[in-house]
Simulated scan of single mutants.
Amino acid sequence: MNSRRRFLQQSSAFLAASVLAPRFLSAQSFTNRPVGIQLFTFFGKFDQDVKGNLQKIAELGYTEIESAFSMLPGFYGMKGKEFMALNKDLGLNWVSHHVVGAPLKPRPGMDMSRFPKMVNLRDDAQQAVDNAAEAGVKYLVCANIPIDTKEEVTQAVETLNKAGELAKKAGLTFCYHNHDAEFKALEGQKPFDIFASQVPADLLKFELDLGWASKAGVDVVELFKQHPGRFPLCHIKDFDSEFKNILPVGEGVVNYKRIFDAAKSGGLEHFFVEHDFPKDAFESLRISKKALDAIL
C-alpha cells in the first residue's frame, strides 16, 4: 500500500511538473530577454565616434541596437552591411531601423539646410525598405508621421499601408512608433485606433513607446489585451510625476513591472531603452540597465 501511495504521489508530482514547466520556462525565457538601446539617445553625438560609442554600449551590458537618423550619410556614415558587421564584431545585434514617415516639419527658427536629406516613407518608401533589407535588419519602424489634422491622419494611413506592403514583400516586419499624440482624440477618433483598424495586422505591427503611452494616460496592459501579439518592439523611458521630464528608467513613475508581467500578451520580443536628449547618455543608460536588471 505504501509503495502504491508513493507511486501515485510521484506520478502526481511528475504530472504537475510537466504541466507547469512550459509556464516556468516561458517566464524564465522572458527574464533572459536581451535589452537594447535606441541610438537616438545619442543624437548629435553618436556620429563623432561610432565604433567607440558602440563599444561603450556593449560594455554596459546592452546587446541589441536600434538605429535612427544620423547627420552622416547611410547608416552613421557606413553602408548597411558595414554597420551590421561592426555591430556583430562588438557582440551587438542590430535589430531595427527608424525612418520618418514624411518630411519633418521644421520648428520655428530651425535651420533645416544643415540637415542632410532624410529618406521618408511618404516619398521614398521603396528606398527605405531596400536600405533596411540590404543591411539585414529584421524590422523597419516609422518613427513618426504628421497627425495634427484629419487629412494628415488619412494620408498617414495611406503611407503606412504602402510601406507595410513593400516591407512584407522584402521580408521585413514593419512597425509604427508612437508618441503621446497618437492617443489623443482628433475629431472623436484616436490616430492609434485608426492605424490599428485601417492598416492590416500583417502589414503593420507597433513599437509601443511605453513611456509616451503612459504619459498619454494609456493602460498599456489593457492595450495589450485589445491587440494581442501586435507589439514585437517597445521603447522604455521614464517620466517624472508630472510627465514633463524624461528620466532614466527606475527614477520615474512608470510601473514597468506591471507592464512586463503582461509582456507575453502584447507579444514583446525586443526592448530598447531610449532617453531623448539626456545630459549624460551613458550615465542614463547605466542607471536604466541596473533598474531593468532588477525588474526583469
Rank of each mutant, 00 (worst) to 15 (best):
S3C: 08
R5K: 15
Q10T: 09
Q10W: 08
S11R: 08
S12W: 08
L15W: 11
S18F: 09
V19E: 00
S26Y: 00
F30V: 02
N32H: 11
F40I: 10
F40S: 09
F43I: 07
F46Y: 14
F46W: 11
V50A: 01
N53E: 09
A58D: 07
L60A: 11
G61L: 11
Y62P: 07
T63Q: 11
T63N: 03
E66C: 10
F75D: 09
G77N: 13
K81Q: 13
F83M: 14
A85E: 11
L86N: 02
L86W: 03
N87I: 00
L90H: 06
L92R: 10
W94P: 05
R107C: 00
P108R: 08
M110T: 09
M112S: 09
R114H: 06
P116L: 12
K117W: 07
V119L: 15
V119N: 08
R122E: 12
D123P: 03
D123L: 05
A125R: 00
D130Q: 03
E134D: 15
A135H: 12
A135E: 13
K138M: 04
Y139N: 12
Y139P: 11
A143D: 02
A143V: 05
N144Q: 13
D148S: 15
A156K: 00
E158Q: 10
T159C: 14
K168S: 06
F174M: 04
F174C: 04
D180Y: 12
F183D: 11
F183N: 10
L186F: 03
D193Q: 15
F195C: 09
A196N: 02
A196F: 12
A196W: 06
S197V: 05
A201V: 15
L203W: 13
D209N: 10
L210H: 01
W212R: 01
W212I: 01
F224G: 04
K225C: 01
K225E: 10
H227F: 14
H227V: 02
L233R: 03
L233Q: 06
E242L: 11
F243A: 02
G250R: 10
V253F: 06
K264Y: 10
K264V: 14
G267Q: 11
H270M: 07
D276R: 07
F277C: 07
P278D: 05
S284R: 03
S288D: 04
K289R: 15
L292H: 11
